[in-house]
Amino acid sequence: MGIRKRKGSDVWYVDVRTPGGERIRHSTGTTNRKEAQEYHDKLKHDQWRVAKLGERAARTFDEAALRFLRESEDKADYVHRELHIAHFCERFAGRNLDTLTRDEIFDALPQVSRKSKKVTALTNGTRNLYLGTLRAMLNKAAHEWGWIATAPKLPNLAVANKRVRWITRDEARKLLKTIRTDWMRDVAVFGFATGLRQANILGLEWSQVDLVKRRAWIHPDQAKARKPIGVPLNTEAVEVIRRNLGRHSTFVFSRRGKPIVKWDLAQWNRAVAAAGIDHFRFHDVRHTWASWHVQGGTPLNRLMELGGWSKYEMVLRYAHLAPDHLAHHAEAVTIWAQSPPGVPEGNAKSLVA
């Protein structure tokens, strides 16, 4: 055992046993024998210190990235996690995990996006997604795997609070009238009626619908939070489903008898413009549905269930739309608990008004 080359490869591989008997075999990452031998000797030395002195074994960023991605394979956002980790690997590959500093991590955050040959500056919101992925990996390394003593503190970058984008029922009716394609109109109506995400609507199968009991369901592997969602169907949602009976054997919504693989964004944007509505994405249909619910008196905890949100904070952004539940608390700060001086009993309310 020691260092050796594998058949057909110029790279040296290390093959050693730890003091505890564990066998370690992997690439040294170099074709230089001297460098490979130095790597081997350091590895043996480190393993001895771990076994005899109780020191923590040094782990690399690459090792952590590989394990984190393996443990994330069942996550709904796996594709994004993979993208984020790949970005940081370009900067931290080969580095010992416990040497990463807070400042280095923030310096390594991406500044621009280069999609479709177009370079655009990334918002802090998007950069926070990268930060969140790395934070999750380092926290696992510290608290679950025991690879590092502590994880760097990585607070999110400041993000400007934006208003929740929603439209009124009158605006929604105008929008639906401007959509010329039947399948797109049906999808939009179903979105306003159920609040489901676009992917869940387009992928909805007949096996997920019970028209008799007026309900549908989203399976855990289809939900963003990886939890099942029960969907009560109101009258408009039921009517939409009935209109689509017999059009496709598997999917509720179809286009010319075939599954819908892609949303027609160009036609959607034309319809939005024709209805005189500014900057309204299809995802804003979900925001609109939630806003209507809150304005109609649906409690936030029930809305959380209906929308399949995993965090209560996600529904709190709609709370301001219906502050009625706070109205009685407003009386706690009235100036005149009784009639103010010089004002006859019963006239205090007119004074305040």
Score class of each variant (00 low, 15 high):
residue 108 A to I: 07
residue 295 Q to Y: 03
residue 214 R to V: 06
residue 188 A to N: 05
residue 169 R to A: 13
residue 7 K to T: 15
residue 39 Y to M: 10
residue 282 F to Q: 07
residue 349 K to I: 14
residue 204 L to M: 15
residue 84 H to K: 02
residue 65 A to T: 14
residue 96 N to L: 06
residue 119 V to Y: 00
residue 289 W to V: 00
residue 137 M to I: 06
residue 54 G to A: 08
residue 212 V to L: 04
residue 4 R to I: 00
residue 167 I to Y: 03
residue 218 I to N: 02
residue 119 V to E: 12
residue 212 V to P: 00
residue 216 A to Y: 01
residue 331 E to I: 12
residue 315 V to H: 01
residue 12 W to Q: 06
residue 245 L to Y: 04
residue 191 G to W: 08
residue 230 G to F: 07
residue 295 Q to T: 12
residue 288 T to F: 06
residue 124 N to W: 02
residue 251 F to H: 13
residue 70 R to Y: 05
residue 167 I to L: 04
residue 86 A to L: 06
residue 252 V to M: 06
residue 162 K to E: 15
residue 69 L to Q: 02
residue 74 D to G: 13
residue 164 V to H: 01
residue 264 D to V: 03
residue 235 T to D: 15
residue 347 N to A: 13
residue 47 Q to V: 08
residue 54 G to K: 06
residue 314 M to W: 07
residue 297 G to F: 01
residue 240 V to K: 03
residue 8 G to M: 05
residue 109 L to F: 08
residue 90 E to S: 10
residue 294 V to N: 01
residue 145 W to I: 07
residue 326 L to E: 14
residue 251 F to W: 15
residue 192 F to P: 04
residue 42 K to V: 09
residue 62 D to Y: 10
residue 22 E to C: 02
residue 168 T to D: 11
residue 256 R to Q: 10
residue 144 E to L: 13
residue 45 H to Q: 14
residue 321 L to K: 02
residue 187 V to G: 01
residue 352 V to L: 07
residue 229 I to N: 02
residue 311 K to V: 01
residue 189 V to G: 05
residue 71 E to C: 02
residue 38 E to M: 12
residue 242 R to G: 05
residue 37 Q to F: 12
residue 17 R to D: 11
residue 212 V to D: 11
residue 255 R to L: 13
residue 146 G to A: 14
residue 268 W to F: 06
residue 192 F to Y: 04
residue 116 S to H: 13
residue 232 P to E: 11
residue 52 K to F: 09
residue 186 D to W: 02
residue 46 D to A: 12
residue 68 F to H: 09
residue 262 K to S: 12
residue 250 T to M: 01
residue 95 R to H: 08
residue 232 P to D: 11
residue 296 G to R: 05
residue 37 Q to G: 08
residue 317 R to C: 07
residue 115 K to V: 15
residue 30 T to V: 06
residue 133 T to I: 08
residue 222 Q to I: 01
residue 27 S to A: 14
residue 101 T to K: 10
residue 26 H to G: 09
residue 188 A to L: 03
residue 59 R to K: 14
